[in-house]
Design a protein around this nucleic acid. Structure first.
Lengths: 190, 190
DNA sequence: TGTGAAAACTAATGTAATTAGTTATTATAA
DNA sequence: TTATAATAACTAATTACATTAGTTTTCACA
């Protein structure tokens, strides 16, 4: 057992990530990917099961990256400071890797445990950071949902170019996070 | 001037909306649409310029619907009550018309004035409802951005099935809106 | 009742995903 | 050093769409 060594998955995902960040998730095609890898399209099937599987793996790849950056941002901080750091890392990732971010969100419905695991790790990180606010059981879960909504909502509208006005985006985002934090501190969430 | 009367655009958008709500925006194809309209695919080109144009028109169609429901929900209310009504109408629309909602958001980049107009009307409505909080100039615009982020973030994560836990979604959403409102009232936004 | 504008059609082209079956390469076993 | 088995990569063929060109059909009105 030890046949010829060809492409490996990391290389493929790397290139696919480049395509997707350049041209958008919807313009990822096996043809373009193969061209950039200097092979013929059908050869890709030796490594991945098809376009849908590629998107799936790309989503997992993106989630790993996102998680890594969020952990790095949050480490050594707590409370509001940690929340702000986490938030900034999140939108930062979306800005630097718009296609990959999109892939993490628009992953096809599936019960792929690896994908679920990757999603879960990001959620878990948020749960941990919010723990310091001492929210009771259910309230904590609702609050995590709210926080995720804010992060994804802002990031995706920004990426879609949905904020038309020439008004500072970072300011909008910081204010949003602070407004949310103020709401939490006001005790509404208990 | 008065040749034979065939399909009209409303009928086409109606059927396209059905497809998209059933199978998702990515599964909208001219073939499927033509089949349901009982015509051959190329005949569609007598009414629309192609798949991309169809998506565009679908986005406008969806935005009109969304706006209508939001207006209806907000009328006769003001302040927090109006904000809650608006919010509920928004997620309600997304739940009842997932594909159409997706179309409104993932409209192809374009400078189609009709699309921009339709988007603008929704934003304007939110601006008006938030006016009662007397936020100063810039602060008001940042707050609208925040509110939109919350609405879209929650709606799209819910549609994507991203909230895994068996925890009441309406409760999460109401709490999120109330937390945001509490943040606004706390004066963070000034 | 005739007609012309536009709806709908058939046929053809181009692109992309996917499958089947073949060839080429190379890490190890002999 | 050489043989071979595992598998990467290839060519050829199929299928599904979107789109274009060119033809036929229909029907509201003059």
């Amino acid at each position: 057992m030890s046949p010829r060594m060809g492409l490996d998955l990391p290389t493929i995902l790397q290139k696919a990530g480049e395509i997707v960040d350049e041209k958008g998730l919807d313009h990822l095609s096996l043809g373009e990917l193969a061209r950039r890898l200097q092979i013929r399209t059908p050869s890709l099937y030796n490594h991945i099961e098809g376009l849908e599987a590629l998107r799936q793996k790309l989503a997992i790849h993106g989630l790993h990256n996102l998680h890594e950056r969020m952990v790095y941002a949050a480490v050594g901080r707590s409370g509001d400071e940690a929340v702000r750091a986490l938030s900034e890392a999140y939108v930062s990732f979306a800005r630097n890797h718009p296609g990959l971010y999109d892939a993490t969100f628009r992953a096809p419905e599936t019960d792929d445990p690896e994908l679920q695991q990757a999603q879960h790790k990001v959620v878990e990180l948020v749960v941990q950071v919010l723990q310091v606010y001492g929210l009771k059981d259910e309230a904590a879960l609702h609050t995590v949902r709210g926080f995720r909504s804010i992060l994804h909502g802002f990031a995706s509208i920004e990426l879609a170019g949905g904020f038309g006005l020439p008004l500072d985006l970072d300011k909008s985002f910081l204010l949003l996070i602070d407004t949310f934090l103020a709401g939490i501190h006001s005790g509404t969430s208990n």
